[in-house]
Amino acid sequence: MWDSLVERVQEFFFNMLVSAINSLLGTTANIFEKSIDNVQSGIVETPEQFSPTLVEALRLISETAVMPVAGLILTYVFCYEIYILLTERNRGNEFDTGQVFFLIFKAAVIILLISNSFDLTLAFFDLSQWMINQISVGSLSVTDIFQTGITDGLEEGEIGTALTLLIVALIAMVFAFFIAGIIYLVAWSRMITIMLYISISPLPFATLMNRDWVGSIGQNYLKQLVALMLQGFFMIICLVVYAGLIEKVSVLIIDEGATVYGILLMLVSMGVLALMLTRTHTLAKSVLGVI
């Protein structure tokens, strides 16, 4: 009778531990899945889709505060080009009217670019959205895998193992909160950077008229825009790779009956994803040779 009572108590505590483990693992997976889903939808969004009100406010700021300064910079660059033209031609003794007309034509083109610079910068991210939409990203759901696969590896009465697994699952949940925060940070900081870049767009466009050190400002700005565009593409690729890692982990859990090791692999997969997401902007800039 006493042995039967002990077995019932052990069974009760074991079932309670398994239920707690399932709850913690489910919470961990749900936290991470929601962050992945939000990031995935956020990457696809253009600035206008993210916040039309904010984009219109930035457009007004760009036209009223930045555009006049861009006009001053363009005037300086135009005068600088006239100076270079005169000094290169024997201090004006061999004045070429054709080059002057060409210079005026370039100024007219740059004025047109400056006037539409805000819309041109937004067009970069419309192109980014098109690229990302060509990638088919499957479901990244992992809740069922870790709730059933890991606890199924426990045998009845293994209270010590279940208690260890409970502690590991609790640590995993805390780690998931931390990793999810990093993922949100990367996604939102990219969008804020995009907003900052489009708000100041008339200034670098005003320097494109010059081909020397002044013009390099505008060229570097365009490279940075393309880098931000490619960052979204690389972030989606990271999610695709993460889906492959999760599939590999699920095979180990189901086929080999791994428990703590399975949770460890899940945490490693989360960490690798967060690390690669933080490096996507640097990777995009290195592809374009941006300093």
Rank of each mutant, 00 (worst) to 15 (best):
V249Y: 11
L54A: 09
I43Q: 05
L283V: 12
G244D: 08
K248Q: 11
T87A: 08
T161K: 06
S128F: 01
G26A: 06
V137S: 04
T121C: 09
R211S: 15
S269V: 11
A107N: 04
S189D: 10
S19T: 12
L163C: 09
L17G: 06
A274N: 07
V249C: 14
L264Y: 03
N93Y: 05
I236M: 09
T280Q: 10
L283C: 09
M209V: 09
A180S: 14
L283A: 09
K223C: 00
I159R: 02
L140H: 01
D37R: 14
S62D: 09
M270Y: 11
D255T: 08
T97G: 10
T278N: 09
I61D: 12
F125Y: 08
V249Q: 15
R190A: 13
I291H: 02
S19G: 15
P68V: 12
P204L: 06
L72R: 04
N116D: 15
I182G: 01
S35L: 04
A108N: 03
L122F: 04
K285M: 13
L58G: 10
Q147Y: 00
A70R: 05
I263H: 07
K248I: 08
D255Y: 11
L252H: 13
Q99T: 13
S115H: 15
T53Q: 07
N22P: 14
V168H: 10
M276V: 12
Q10Y: 06
S35R: 04
M16S: 08
S51Y: 10
